[in-house]
């Protein structure tokens, strides 16, 4: 984090895909912050660059230019191996399609980040069960993903993002596959379980129903942040 308590700091971040005539400028000089203890939403129409920005912040893609600081580290300066370890230790992911491993039970899916960190299976699954219990899923720990409803799968995905106590949680369209009521319930859970003073949450969404949960909303269009709302107040 920086001296101002920001988990993520972007300064003039750009991302270009392809070369020559096929070149696409996905990010055109992004300036933004995501503070610790806050839920930040990146919103905008399809193709506005929000998922690309999320990929750059998480180190899954390299920025073409600009300065990016995530939890005090510059991902662009880390080696590929260091970047993987950085993600494993500090980041939690919640995906639009949940991305649970179909062959694993709910508890085993939740345990994956600990397994990736070298923890023993029994120990990791026990922690997974405890997290699911805390999220009200104790009765579904042995269920396979295809036996769970969409809302339940997203709760399992949230538990997986939380299990290793990361300092930055990123969510890609966490409610787009859910009905309004379930989406609301998931967001309440996310807000309650994920937002802590030493943790930041960044959500990419175009679901306006969940905007009220945000502390900060960055409206994006055509690779730029066109408007920034902080605690409901509009900026430039």
């Amino acid at each position: 984090m920086d001296e101002n308590g920001n988990a993520v700091l972007c300064r003039d971040v750009m991302k270009v895909f392809g070369r020559g005539d096929a070149q696409v400028q996905a990010l055109r000089g992004i300036d933004m912050e995501a503070g610790l203890g806050e839920m930040t939403m990146l919103v905008g129409p399809s193709g506005s660059g929000k998922t690309t920005l999320l990929s750059v912040i998480t180190g899954l893609l390299d920025a073409t230019a600009g300065d990016l600081v995530v939890l005090g580290e510059r991902p662009g300066r880390l080696s590929p191996e260091e970047r993987i370890l950085f993600r494993r230790k500090n980041l939690g992911f919640v995906f639009q399609q949940y991305n649970l491993i179909p062959a694993l039970t709910a508890a085993e899916n939740v345990a994956v980040p600990l397994l990736a960190d070298g923890r023993k299976r029994q120990q990791a699954v026990a922690v997974g069960k405890a997290i699911l219990d805390a999220l009200g899923m104790s009765h579904r720990v042995h269920a396979l993903p295809n036996e769970l409803s969409g809302g339940e799968q997203q709760r399992v995905a949230l538990a997986r993002a939380l299990i290793h106590d990361p300092r930055l949680i990123v969510c890609d369209e966490p409610t787009s596959a859910l009905d309004a009521r379930t989406g609301h319930a998931v967001m309440e859970l996310l807000r309650a379980a994920a937002v802590r003073p030493d943790r930041a949450v960044i959500i990419v969404t175009h679901d306006a129903r969940i905007f009220p949960f945000a502390d900060r909303i960055a409206h994006m269009d055509d690779g730029r942040i066109v408007n920034l709302e902080v605690n409901g107040k509009k900026g430039d």
Binding site: R87, P113, D117, R160
Partner: peptide, 11 residues
């Protein structure tokens, strides 16, 4: 699934 594992931090 492998992509998810890579994103999560599996080397």
């Amino acid at each position: 699934q492998f992509g998810t594992l890579k994103a999560i931090g599996v080397t």
